[in-house]
């Protein structure tokens, strides 16, 4: 969009920025769509936006995946009105933990491990980070760990499904506009 008056400060926008913004927009759209889904327990969500993070991780590396994931958490929470609410910090803790695990998981030998492994590991890290933050801050009682089996089950199921979707997307010949342009 062209500015009405010429700006005195020009921030150079690189192809990287456009690519990250495009994927982050997709992740945010999935986050927003997901809030319409009913959840049996607060905290149990499919985490569809993580499909985008996995695709970005496999195609463009960890740095881009971290950008997309964190932009998704911040902008997604702004869109759904949760910015700086407890849910935002839980999502941030989960995202940071799963990014940390993905940083290690990307070095798994690709001969034996695909996106499904990365997705499941990241999903476990996600609930791990959330439950630790919840225990330290929101519910100062070991009772939260009582819910761990349920959260772990959800992480396993949704992690596997998201990983399969990401694997299928990655399996297709890439037709990303960014790559076509590059």
């Amino acid at each position: 969009m062209a500015p009405m008056t010429p700006s005195t400060i020009e921030l150079p926008v690189t192809a990287d920025d456009y690519r990250i913004a495009r994927y982050a927009a997709a992740a945010i759209a999935l986050t927003v769509a997901e809030t319409a889904l009913p959840s049996p327990l607060p905290g149990i969500k499919p985490g569809l936006a993580n499909i985008i993070v996995l695709v970005v991780l496999a195609r463009y590396g960890w740095r881009d995946a971290a950008w997309v994931s964190l932009l998704r958490v911040v902008a997604g929470s702004l869109v759904i009105g949760q910015f700086l609410a407890p849910g935002f910090f839980l999502a941030l803790a989960g995202a940071l933990c799963s990014l940390a695990v993905l940083a290690l998981a990307q070095y798994l030998p690709p001969r034996f491990f695909g996106p499904v492994s990365a997705s499941v590991l990241a999903a476990f890290a996600h609930i791990g980070g959330q439950i630790v933050l919840a225990r330290l801050w929101l519910v100062p009682h070991d009772g939260v760990f009582y819910l761990l089996p349920l959260f772990a089950t959800a992480a396993l199921v949704f992690g596997a499904i998201n990983g399969l979707v990401a694997a299928r997307l990655l399996d297709l010949p890439a037709v990303a506009p960014a790559e076509a342009a590059a």
Partner: peptide, 9 residues
């Protein structure tokens, strides 16, 4: 889409 390591994990 699942490799051997994925199944094991």
């Amino acid at each position: 889409l699942l490799k051997a390591g994925d199944w094991a994990l």
